[in-house]
């Protein structure tokens, strides 16, 4: 496959108006990604699938990643697509698209109409991260039960406290045990006293 700068130029030329940036991976991995804006991700993905130089007909992996707010940079949820080619046996081409973290604004176009293999994985990203995919044929929860509220894999999700018995609780497990009125062994109680005195 060609160098990432060349791929970026070709893609930016093919889809006018698209904002494509290069995001580097770790120095050793040599798998740089193309960060595309939300409006043009579908067109860019279609270009990669149909262009005879690339023919990326195999969508291998769809991942959701949650980036929290850091200093003044706002947080975002990123969806990463890894594309390979079965016809030409090359790859990967990594596409990234970002959406804001607030639940009502977290929408991204779905790439399921292009690759059927993205169907279950996009459902999983919706279930665990809350990213809504516009154009997905069947967007509903896949791994958690249907009555579940909230999206568990987000970094700010607090699981329910059913820690009634914990032999050596500390830090936030200890806080939760105290709140639910669970049993705290004497050593843990000493820790609590020390923390209160500080």
């Amino acid at each position: 496959m060609e160098a990432i700068e060349k791929i970026k130029e070709v893609a930016a030329q093919a889809v006018p108006g698209a904002q494509v940036e290069i995001v580097n991976s770790t120095p050793a991995a040599q798998q740089p990604a193309l960060l595309v804006d939300r409006e043009h991700i579908y067109a860019i993905a279609k270009f990669f699938k149909e262009d005879p130089r690339f023919q990326m007909d195999f969508c291998s992996c769809v991942t959701g990643v949650d980036y929290l707010q850091k200093a003044d940079k706002p947080g975002f949820i990123e969806v990463v697509y890894h594309l390979y080619s079965v016809a030409q046996k090359h790859g990967p081409v990594v596409l990234k698209v970002r959406a804001p973290r607030e639940l009502d604004q977290c929408r991204v176009p779905s790439l399921t109409p292009l690759w059927r293999g993205a169907e279950f994985q996009e459902r999983e990203a919706y279930d665990l991260y809350g990213v809504k995919f516009d154009g997905h044929p069947n967007l509903r929860r896949i791994l958690m039960w249907d009555e579940f509220t909230d999206h568990p894999m987000r970094k700010d999700y607090v699981p329910p406290s059913d820690y009634e018995w914990e032999p050596t609780p500390h830090d936030d497990t200890l806080q939760r045990t105290v709140q639910t009125g669970g049993i705290t062994p004497p050593t843990a109680r000493e820790e609590l006293e020390k923390a209160k005195k500080k």
């Binding site: 580097n24 991976s25 770790t26 120095p27 050793a28 991995a29 798998q31 990604a33 291998s60 992996c61 991942t63 990643v65 990463v80 890894h82 990967p92 990594v94």
Partner: peptide, 24 residues
């Protein structure tokens, strides 16, 4: 420690393509 960045590694497991996407 691993320097910051991400990467995807895959093998041919007996059931198919097993891959890990890791972000550091």
């Amino acid at each position: 420690k691993i320097p910051p960045g991400d990467g995807y590694g895959r093998i041919e497991a007996p059931k198919g393509e097993l891959g890990f996407y890791l972000v550091s």
